[in-house]
Nucleic acid binder design. Structure first.
Ligand code: FES
Ligand code: FES
Lengths: 168, 168
DNA sequence: CCCAATTCCTATCATCGCGATAGGTTTACT
DNA sequence: AGTAAACCTATCGCGATGATAGGAATTGGG
């Protein structure tokens, strides 16, 4: 499960990307628009600021603002900064690596072999998607919805096994 | 993080696939070989038996055994049976779906849009891999290791971005 | 210059899932 | 009978998570 911290952060960033022109946006505004607990969001945005993605200004007319262009914000970095590495196994994390005590040989570990692929696939998506791309996809899906077309229903590039597409 | 329950289960299944010819294998044997807490593994194998992929026999010369062929065991089902759905969001699970209270519109939710891809990629791997394939890969990687060759280092099918391959 | 709005900081809390253990009951082979 | 194993139920410690409380520091508007 993706932690709430990361979920809220992504929502807030999408919101801020949309309101880039409006100058600084106060936390309360974002929290109200996205139904996020104010004090919780406060802490999240603070972390995002300390990690360099956001700028803040205090006092009246203050608030948060994107520091960099949405095209340069990789969503994987957002999740990592807030919720730590997303490796499904300790032995698969670069920054927080530590040996799996239960495994005799890391090189021939079946679990590791399987999850390495999962992890790589996940990273290819979250690190390969920028905030700008995400905003664009939301817009596209909103349009597609109005036209009765989902952007995920592409007949080409079929699933590995027909019955395995989107099980759970 | 993949729960211990699932990690142990996968290890035990690989072990059982390897010892298919030996007849029933007692829990203590598997636990010793794979360094798994005996009582914990006991509960795990019991669940796997109740889900239909293992057979058990009691008394002396008893133990656990694969009920079906390793080619028909989809690893995703193993993980699901033991640790529940692996959807990264409540709204992405088929069997345990429930609406995200924090999200106004599911169709235009950025978080959902992003994680849907992650989830699909994960499912394509774990449900597209069978126990037999996993055992084969372990063997292949063991050979590759002896030859100084890792099976994951394929120059073709390059990563989306060069610096994004295997970050964390 | 004072007030209010806002970020910023620290501490604390309740809950829950997870990994694991304990202690037994039942089955079945020799 | 005796023993080895599966089977069952209950419980426990622990840490992470999501959230709240209460205030301190900063800054613009009147
Ligand atoms: S799971 Fe990390 S080495 Fe086996
Ligand atoms: S995260 Fe599920 S609808 Fe937004």
């Amino acid at each position: 499960m993706l932690p709430m911290k990361s979920r809220y952060a992504l929502k807030a960033l999408v919101f801020l990307a949309r309101h880039q022109a409006d100058g600084p946006v106060p936390v309360a505004g974002i929290a109200a628009a996205e139904a996020i607990p104010v004090k919780f969001l406060e802490a999240i945005l603070l972390e995002l600021r300390n990690s360099g993605i956001l700028t803040s200004r205090r006092g009246p007319t203050g608030g948060y603002q994107l520091r960099v262009e949405p095209e340069t914000v990789h969503l994987g970095d957002v999740i990592r900064n807030l919720s730590g590495p997303m490796a499904p196994l300790p032995c698969l994390s670069k920054t927080a690596y530590h040996r799996c005590t239960e495994c005799v040989d890391e090189a021939t570990c079946a679990v590791r072999l399987l999850m390495a692929d999962v992890h790589a696939a996940t990273l290819r998506i979250v690190d390969g998607t920028t905030l700008a791309q995400l905003v664009a996809r939301v817009d596209a899906s909103a349009v597609g919805e109005a036209e009765g077309q989902s952007e995920r229903c592409r007949p080409e590039q079929g699933p590995v096994s027909a019955k395995l597409d989107f099980i759970d």
